[in-house]
Amino acid sequence: MKSSVRVPVGASAAALLLAAGAVGCSGGTDESPEMTPAAAVAKAAKNTEEIDSIRYRMTGRAPEEGRVKAEAQMRIKPTLAMSMKMTALDQGADGTAEIRLVDKAMYIGGGARAAKEMDGKSWIKFDMAAVGAEEELNQLGSASQADKNPATESTFLTGAEDVEKVGTETVDGVKTTHYKGTVTVADLEKSLGDEDKATREKRKKSLEQYEKMGVDTLTMDMWIDGDDRTKQFRMRGEADKGPLDMTITFLGLNEPVEVTAPPAKDTVDLAEMMKEARQG
């Protein structure tokens, strides 16, 4: 096998980032008219605790990667699993990738183009914890970017002091109420002490990705349906390496999600390769 391994890096890196950004969805009409904007946002955030699985679409712009689009499904409970097909539109032929997270291992597939670089194998497996290579895993982008509860980001709007109702809009055929507000990462970090342990850990993990990107302030838009659940949300901010502007639209909630690992014959196990290199 060739010693050089190439996959669509731009798409893969963006997918690792994007896999963390989703919340639940449902259908319906407007929320109760007496509900204040802050109360509506808080109730939608509370309802994310009921989410076991989600199916969603993402479009927008990610730092460094440029324009991206993706569709994904994720099972949160009882065990974590995820599959995502995404394209970094500004990356050309190298911009398409598929990611699967199953059995605590992450697989990145680059299709036929990757197979040309890896003696016919189109998938790379990241399972470095199994061989004690956590540091290398973190340097490569860390599967931890994909194992966060995807409901967490939507709850950030509850920390905004300027939440306001924009109006009523239809999103994918669902009537929703649109809210917006601005939050700072610093204020969100300060508020962690007011949360229970489980919520605090989830929020802390999600905030870390924005810190690493250099995002200080997030402008958020949130579209809530008649079942008091988030149908869509948008997050914008300025990162060290470019703008972040991502819109996530929810297509399914609490549906069965099955994710399988790619065939072993089509997979290069990066952890095993590194283990053999160390022994050599």
Results as ranks from 00 to 15, higher is better:
100 R>L: 09
72 A>Q: 03
224 I>S: 04
150 P>K: 11
184 T>V: 10
116 K>Y: 05
128 M>N: 12
92 G>W: 12
249 T>P: 08
177 T>G: 08
127 D>W: 02
184 T>N: 06
23 V>F: 05
24 G>W: 00
205 K>N: 10
225 D>I: 09
262 P>D: 11
280 G>L: 14
44 A>S: 04
218 L>G: 02
13 A>P: 01
193 G>N: 08
189 E>Y: 08
110 G>W: 00
227 D>R: 10
232 Q>W: 02
131 V>T: 12
3 S>C: 04
205 K>F: 04
99 I>L: 15
118 M>C: 13
207 L>P: 01
28 G>V: 07
185 V>R: 02
51 I>K: 04
88 A>P: 07
261 A>D: 00
85 K>E: 12
31 E>F: 09
244 L>K: 00
66 G>M: 12
13 A>F: 11
20 A>S: 04
84 M>F: 00
209 Q>E: 04
209 Q>N: 03
191 S>L: 12
61 R>P: 06
239 A>H: 03
125 K>M: 11
26 S>E: 01
174 V>P: 09
49 E>D: 12
192 L>M: 09
59 T>K: 14
67 R>V: 03
242 G>K: 04
219 T>F: 06
64 E>M: 15
98 E>A: 13
42 A>R: 03
187 D>W: 05
134 E>M: 15
141 G>I: 10
